[in-house]
């Protein structure tokens, strides 16, 4: 398949070279975060506290995996609907977030923040969860363990096929 190879974390030149509709093959680290983790991160920013990981240049994957069976690295882990995170995303982009992976449309405010700060939004196929799990080579919880599936995990990806939905 004709896919552009992307090595995370993203740099400004990589982002600049991408266009909506491009098919990419992503490798490298991402951090999972969804509804509850975003709420906590936003609360931290309001209080002026540091985020649970150094967000500058990093990519967030909107996902909450199912539990791993014994011997598995991770359970099925497809994307969740990105729009639910829209309320929090512009402040994270401002704080340095450069990439997002999820499914579905984003708000005008998110699109504007992406343009202003040079961030990119990748789409993966919602519901392709068992297939996507095969692209995860390492998984560790880095924060909010009490949130269960909603905890922030650092995943090491290899060969995740995605499409550029916006930047």
């Amino acid at each position: 398949m004709n896919a552009i190879d992307i090595a995370l974390p993203l740099c400004a030149q990589t982002v600049a070279a991408l266009n909506p509709g491009d098919i990419v093959r992503i490798g490298g680290p991402v951090y999972t975060a969804r509804d509850a983790a975003h709420r906590r991160m936003a609360e931290s920013l309001v209080r002026g506290e540091p985020l649970p990981f150094a967000i500058a240049g990093q990519t967030i994957y909107y996902a909450g995996p199912a539990p791993a069976r014994p011997g598995q690295i991770i359970g099925p882990c497809g994307p969740t609907t990105s729009a639910r995170m829209d309320a929090y995303t512009p402040q994270l982009i401002k704080a340095g977030l450069r990439g997002m992976i999820g499914k579905g449309e984003r708000s005008d405010a998110v699109r504007e923040a992406m343009r202003e700060y040079g961030a990119v939004y990748f789409g993966v196929v919602g519901g392709a969860a068992a297939l996507i799990a095969r692209c995860v080579k390492r998984c560790e919880i880095v924060a909010y363990e009490d949130l269960g599936t909603e905890a922030i995990r650092r995943l090491e990806l290899e060969g995740l096929i995605a499409i550029v939905l916006g930047k």
Partner: peptide, 21 residues
């Protein structure tokens, strides 16, 4: 193609089709 491949993996490995079970 990815959706169909995912379905094949899920039933073969007896793993959930989607993480949102």
């Amino acid at each position: 193609e990815q959706i169909l491949e995912n379905q094949r993996i899920a039933s073969e490995e007896r793993t959930p089709l989607c993480q949102d079970t």
